[in-house]
Amino acid sequence: MSDAILQTRNLKKRFGALAATDDVSIDLRAGEIHAIIGPNGAGKSTLIAQICGGLAPDSGTVHLMGRDVTQDSTADRARAGLARTFQISALAMEDTVLENVVLGALGASGRPWQFWTRALSDRSLTAIAEAALERVGLIDQRHMRCAALSHGQRRQLEVAVALTLSPKAFVMDEPMAGLGAEGSHQMTALLDQLRAEAPILLVEHDMDAVFALADRISVLVYGKVIASGSVDEIRSSSTVRVAYLGEEA
């Protein structure tokens, strides 16, 4: 338990009569990919919002590196090393690819109050940004406008921005969303390498990717974790089959 990088304890969130998050305790350990799967409306997005900030839980805690961050803002959690990617790309579309990653490096530097120096001439920022682009394979597109990127490239850019934060943990909301077979394959390879850098809490619908990547899987149904275990355990669990994989027990 002490080696958990990211940890939720008894998280609860209700919207009226609906228990969107019902006593969720999960942890993310160093070096692993922990996948969260579940049918639509299972409360995955609500859970992510509580982990990353932006939505306060009714009760329960979120710990990052052993520190309680439940009351911290999204920005504070990011500075503490929590890097998030979005299901629907949240990128500055009018800006270039490089500017988008420099923004990440700038956030990590914690020094946005510079009014005189050129951001793109600051090697301490661009070096980090270019290294991140190199990692995801977008270095040749760095001067392109983000709006001109393909969908798949935007997904890669999302990951690159997260990388610039030198995070302690990644929280990725459906990084494979909308990717074709080829793109999915590339993203899987990328995430596979990333887990050595920082563990990944992966919310994903693409089961092939989940089964290929995850060290552990937690299954969320109606806001509750109904099963948690290794890929094989989840695959063979009859509860999961009924509740999620849609097969008769």
Binding site: C52, G53, G54, S73, T74, A75, D76, A78, R79, A83, R84, F86, A90, L91, A92, M93, E94, D95, E99, N100, V102, L103, G104, L106, G107, A108, G110, R111, P112, W113, Q114, F115, W116, T117, R118, A119, L120, D122, L125, V161, T164, L165
Partner: peptide, 28 residues
């Protein structure tokens, strides 16, 4: 012109377009 190309301008420009992104890289 200086301000627009400075780190502050870059961050502000992004804050107009995608405030959620600016937050998730640790800026307010």
């Amino acid at each position: 012109a200086r301000l627009q190309n400075a780190p502050f301008g870059l961050a502000l420009n992004a804050a107009r377009q995608v405030p959620t992104r600016v937050e998730t890289v640790g800026l307010n």
